[in-house]
Amino acid sequence: MTITIRQATIYDLQAIQNANLHNLPENYMLKYYMYHILSWPQASYVATTTDLSTYEHDEEAQTVDKYSQKKIDESKTDPSYANPKEKVVGYILGKMEDDPNPEDKTPHGHVTSISVIRTYRRMGIAEKLMRQSLYSLCECYGAKYVSLHVRVSNRAALHLYRDTLQFTVLKIEKSYYADKEDAYSMKKELVLEELVPSLFQKSEFVDDFEKDLLSDEED
């Protein structure tokens, strides 16, 4: 199983809704997710675990016994699966500001919801989802900045947005959430060249698209 990050499609929405219902208290009907993906198809991403046996077969593997066959069939009826080979373990739901009377007329994006299933944390998934989404918001919709809200008690998320992704805190919004908790309102300016996700691999080796990938010479 590999962890895949990829653009979300309509086929992922039910699994995203399921992940959201498992992780967060702010929930939405499917139509709201559809509204996102059908208005800004490039803005949302998912993280999935991808079953490699759909790509290739391990020849040493024993033929699938009835037990594993059964397991495979059952997994499909679990609502966290977007398709038989992929289980959704995280998502980011992004949009452009579309309030007809916005406070600020500069085109800008907003993160409606982002979460990663507890058992898949500490792998940098939320950061990767965020970087892909920010890049697309900037590239496809010309977003000059992106904004989001985070619970003041959510230290892990605050750390990610402020320290890793360099968001700045604009203000505290009192009783923003239904349970009356305050929210930090945060914002990040977007510059396309600085957002290329692979930059954050921090590798000294960069593919120049020319060298033969199979040659023996060392870089």
Binding site: E60, Q201, F205, L213
Partner: peptide
């Protein structure tokens, strides 16, 4: 050949999962 390819890709993308995991599938 595959191993050679994935070794190179892992160098380009050390923080990504697939170039580390896919070889576990095909190696003996």
């Amino acid at each position: 050949k595959r191993l050679k390819l994935y070794n190179k890709l892992e160098k380009f993308y050390p923080k990504s999962d697939p170039p580390k995991v896919i070889p576990l599938m095909f190696l003996k």
